[in-house]
Design a protein around this nucleic acid. Structure first.
Lengths: 192, 192
DNA sequence: CCTCTTTCTTGTCCTAGTTCAATGTTTCCG
DNA sequence: CGGAAACATTGAACTAGGACAAGAAAGAGG
């Protein structure tokens, strides 16, 4: 049950055996069915979840019901609305399982106590957020600067396993194009 | 010379007088003329700079010379390509002064020693990055989901002082629209 | 195995925003 | 002060991608 996260933690932080055990002991295991909304707009996000198994989508919805997928997350990813989690303020996004999921969950309190037990985890979490930021920066650039086709090609290259796991119209909403247009892009690509 | 950053540090971290003094002692002050490129694509970013005075722009350029402004930064902001700074790998962005600037600079080494002297700064930097991430998430959403006009209105509301300080076509490149179209949006708005 | 729902495709028409080019306006610096 | 850059505006022609509609495929769950 903790194999996956322990491999992850050993790779990303320098923990003693005791710290690792403590980390495991504060995690809450949760098995969640497909299509469960883990966080609803307006709610305060009270989890930071490590995905042991499954696939999750984070997304925004605007006043007109228009959806934008912020992120797909699969095994070995952490999922949370950090802003909402950290400041305990209402979120403006949704987080939803796309498959049946096994999650290992930190609450604000357990995270706090974890950080005081093993302060070097501050560093791990900081680096995690930094990588996230940096990849989002690159994504914003591509979103603005490239054509729908190039964005799609880039996506399947970057996340080759995702297209097999999630409906195509979610990918469109990640790329910032309509589902119909993505379909057209794909048929055009297939003809080559 | 350190007034501004000390006010900032007192607000964002819990430092003793000695820690604050140490922080000041490792900062390198640098006065930089207008239109200076602080970081060029391909270079490793070796600074994290606090803006004491002035205005800075971070941007990407693609193969066709198309520019995307990632961020404007003014007084009290930290500027850096964290990914490049942290991993000491080549950057793919540019950082350029738009006005004459006064900067207070951390190098990778001084930051490291700072963090070992005052570990609670880990937290401050983590939160800094988190806020950044979260505002970038919101921006990506708006970039994808809203019209040019709404993006512009949102921008001037969010950053009311920036339009007075930076050329309009840079704002267009921040919003992800052409300079010409921004001009049209503005004249349309003015007619109301 | 069948049915209901979700997802995907294809076509037509339409529009927000682009590109290009020309002109006007500032700014800044020698 | 004057002239060259840099910046902003405007218009005309064009296009990438959107919206809508209708049908085809494909799951999934009883």
């Amino acid at each position: 049950m903790f194999d996956r996260i322990n491999t992850y933690l050993i790779r990303h932080a320098n923990l003693t055996v005791e710290e690792l055990a403590y980390f495991n002991s504060v995690l809450q295991f949760k098995s969640v069915p497909k299509k469960t909304i883990l966080l609803h707009e307006g709610e305060v996000c009270n989890f930071e979840a490590f995905i042991n198994k499954g696939c999750i989508r984070m997304y925004y919805i605007d006043e007109n019901g228009f959806e934008v997928t912020l992120q797909f997350a699969i095994e070995d990813w952490w999922v949370s609305d950090i802003a909402s989690f950290h400041d305990q303020k209402p979120s403006n996004m949704f987080i939803e399982t796309l498959e049946e999921c096994e999650l290992l969950i930190l609450s604000p309190q357990t995270k706090e106590s974890l950080l005081s037990h093993a302060p070097q985890l501050e560093r791990m979490f900081r680096i995690l957020v930094q990588r996230n930021l940096s990849s989002l920066q690159g994504r914003l650039f591509k979103t603005i600067a490239t054509s729908a086709q190039d964005k799609y090609l880039d996506f399947i290259k970057r996340y080759p396993t995702i297209p097999q796991r999630v409906p195509q119209h979610y990918i469109a909403s990640y790329l910032g194009i309509s589902a119909e247009f993505l379909s057209k892009v794909r048929t055009k690509l297939a003809k080559k």
